[in-house]
């Protein structure tokens, strides 16, 4: 999850934020890290670029991008499917 946090920081250019500042279960959007809809698009691109995972159903977005942990679980599940 540390790698994923680093990738999120780099992709979203989250200045002055370190991986340890982002809790595994901290909400990424609104009240948590304060991300918005443009960031959601950036995270979709991150999944495709880094993990070759395409978010096929847009309605899954809120669930997948809820926290770093939900993202990591989604990545793990889809990477297993791709093997």
């Amino acid at each position: 999850m540390l790698d994923l946090k680093e990738q999120i920081i780099a992709q979203l250019n989250l200045q002055d934020i370190k991986p340890e500042d982002i809790g595994d279960d901290q909400p990424l959007f609104v009240e948590g890290l304060g991300l918005d809809s443009i960031d959601a698009l950036e995270l979709i691109v991150l999944l495709q670029q880094q993990y070759k995972i395409k978010l096929s159903n847009a309605e899954d977005g809120p669930k997948v991008f809820k926290t770093v942990r939900t993202m990591a679980e989604y990545i793990t599940a889809h990477q297993a499917q791709n093997v």
């Binding site: 443009i38 698009l41 950036e42 691109v45 495709q48 670029q49």
Partner: peptide
Amino acid sequence: EFNEELLTPTAFI
């Protein structure tokens, strides 16, 4: 770089 795919929105916007 990404062959016209996977474009990040921020730079475009």
